[in-house]
Amino acid sequence: MEFNFGIRAWSAWSPGLNKPDDWLAWSARARLPHGDDAPALPEIAAMMRRRLSTLGRMALQASWWCQGDRPAMPTVFASRYGDVDRSLQLLADLERDGSVSPTGFTMSVHNAISGLYSIVREDRSNAVCVAAGQATAAAGVTEAAGLLADGAGEVMLVCYDEPLPDDYVCFRDEPQARWAWAWRLAPARAGHPRWSLASRPVPAEVRGAPAELPAGLEVLRFFLAEEARLTQHAGTVEWEWRRHG
């Protein structure tokens, strides 16, 4: 299975990395972002902004910058864990009080962030949310490629995550950081760089050297550094990202 696509625009946000030049410099000597800052997100009214967690603010800031004033388009929001802090708090509330806040539950589901984005943009386009472990970014591109194949002119992919809470420390299997990035994907065009994503089964789970970045953030580094190839493993599947031209 292989997909080909172009990337018309990109944006990203992480503590200490707020501008394109910051990210381009970072890609040459990538490090794990640190910090608890949240983007100001002035594009959204304060009443809506207050409903968002730090994760939601990062995802929507990257989304807004990437889409800009472009017309409505399908979106794919890809996050391995989503707003897991909210879900954990709901479980604590349920244990303590025997009930949960309806608003809290609404904002904890995996498509809450994408739903709020569609509301503030007044956009009724197709929206998909995916989670696929360390292959979440690849799953997002796969969904976007399907939408492009169905005739969409452009599809925005938004990838984002944050560290798992300490209660879930046993599930941490990659470096932890707060980050969000967005690509505006379109069919590949002659005379312009194009990217491909291919997958193939491998006989057994591959365990290489310890990763320095989360898998999703490594994909952004590969893109910004204009590298020719990136190979990632998720379980018994190998994903190969390639730049052509």
Rank of each mutant, 00 (worst) to 15 (best):
Y117F: 13
I119M: 08
I119G: 07
I119C: 07
V120A: 04
E122S: 15
D123R: 03
R124F: 12
S125F: 06
N126Y: 08
A127I: 03
A127V: 09
V130Q: 01
A132Y: 05
A132I: 06
Q134H: 13
A135Y: 00
T136Y: 02
A137S: 07
A138F: 04
A139T: 02
G140E: 00
G140Q: 04
G140M: 00
V141R: 01
T142V: 08
T142K: 05
T142D: 11
T142E: 08
E143R: 05
E143G: 00
E143H: 11
A144D: 05
L148A: 06
L148G: 00
A149T: 12
D150M: 14
D150H: 13
G151D: 11
G151F: 12
A152T: 07
A152Q: 07
A152V: 10
G153M: 05
E154K: 11
V155Q: 04
M156F: 07
M156G: 12
C159V: 13
C159N: 07
C159R: 04
Y160I: 10
E162Y: 04
L164T: 09
D166W: 06
D166V: 15
D167Y: 06
Y168L: 15
Y168H: 14
C170Q: 11
F171H: 13
R172G: 05
E174L: 06
P175C: 10
Q176E: 15
Q176W: 07
W179V: 03
A180F: 02
W183V: 02
R184C: 09
L185G: 03
A188W: 00
R189I: 09
R194K: 09
R194G: 12
R194T: 14
R194W: 12
L197H: 01
L197N: 05
A198H: 07
A198P: 06
S199F: 08
S199W: 11
R200G: 15
P201V: 10
P201N: 14
P201E: 09
P201C: 10
V202W: 09
E205T: 14
V206C: 13
R207P: 12
A209R: 14
A209S: 12
P214G: 05
A215M: 07
G216M: 03
G216C: 06
L217V: 03
E218T: 07
V219N: 03
V219I: 03
L220W: 00
L220A: 03
R221C: 05
R221E: 02
F222L: 04
F223L: 06
F223E: 00
F223R: 00
L224F: 04
L224G: 00
L224N: 00
A225S: 04
A225I: 00
E226T: 03
E227T: 08
E227A: 12
A228Q: 06
